[in-house]
Nucleic acid binder design. Structure first.
Lengths: 152, 152
DNA sequence: AAATAAAAGTCAAAGAAGGTCAAATTATTT
DNA sequence: AAATAATTTGACCTTCTTTGACTTTTATTT
């Protein structure tokens, strides 16, 4: 049941939304002790849920008095995201990657939940019946077209 | 002799009708163990009886703490539209017809302007690179998938 | 300045799910 | 009875999470 990673994710997001400046500072080992998990688990959560694509920025310092600072990017940090996404999609993208990308846009509030649903449905494997080798290419085209419709 | 697939189908449908939100979350291996069948049997039941044509929507997650979520689509007042769409789109639809359909849905207030834009972008010819003869079929699939996502 | 302590980072292996596909079997139609 | 369709099974695949040993960086003591 409930993955510890998800619990930590929710915890951090709550901290952030309660904070001034959408920025928090944590200590990795403290947090790990609090959730009774290994310290590297914290890194796992950060890299899978708080990276740039998800709309967060991270800064850290080692050594005594070290910390990890997590900052939630706002919309004005968003310009450029479109170009980055296009590059990421390039000439082909798997369904998994595409889905993650869509979720990250939703999390940033760029698209609504319904819009995310529509996009996911559009790039689903069941829809794109074609030889495997060009499936990802078609998916990439569809995704790029949809993004252009909303962001472009 | 009751087919195990039918038994599982009934079981799941009961769970759903007992649930809040017409949504349930199961674990594939648990369920398979419970019915003493192979895990892939569960997938078989899902793909043959719980796809969007049957009015269901499925979401899943692998890895530790993984699950399968089954949601029954609500078709309330849009019920008629849903049926018409399935029949009208059927196994193939041209870009022209698809666009008209989308516009009419927008006019009826079933989807927003942005959603219409996204959908049109998804079924555009520039996205679907494939032999002409199956182009309309792929387009139909994409469109059906998207509509099912919205009606859910 | 060197040694020590106190952080955080990395990476790979193990574990925990769910997914796919095709062969074998069983039911249903013709 | 033969042909076709639906179901069952199992071997193998992919994704995601957890854990832990080892590394690197920085601050504090000696």
């Amino acid at each position: 049941m409930a993955r510890i990673s998800d619990v930590i994710e929710v915890f951090l997001k709550e901290l952030i939304s309660d904070s001034k400046n959408r920025t928090i500072e944590i200590q990795r080992n403290e947090l790990a002790k609090y959730f009774d998990c290994s310290p590297s688990q914290i890194n796992y959560v950060l890299t899978t849920r708080f990276d740039y694509v998800h709309g967060y920025y991270i800064e850290s310092q080692r050594g005594g008095g070290g910390y990890i600072k997590i900052k939630k990017l706002t919309m004005d940090h968003r310009d450029g995201i479109y170009a980055i996404l296009l590059k990421e999609i390039a000439n082909g993208i798997t369904k998994m990657k595409g889905n993650k990308l869509i979720v990250s846009l939703q999390e940033r509030g760029v698209i609504s939940e319904r819009e995310a649903k529509i996009m996911k449905a559009a790039i689903d494997d069941t829809a794109i019946i074609s030889p495997l080798n060009i499936k990802d290419e078609i998916r990439a085209n569809i995704l790029k077209n949809m993004l252009a419709a909303v962001l472009g």
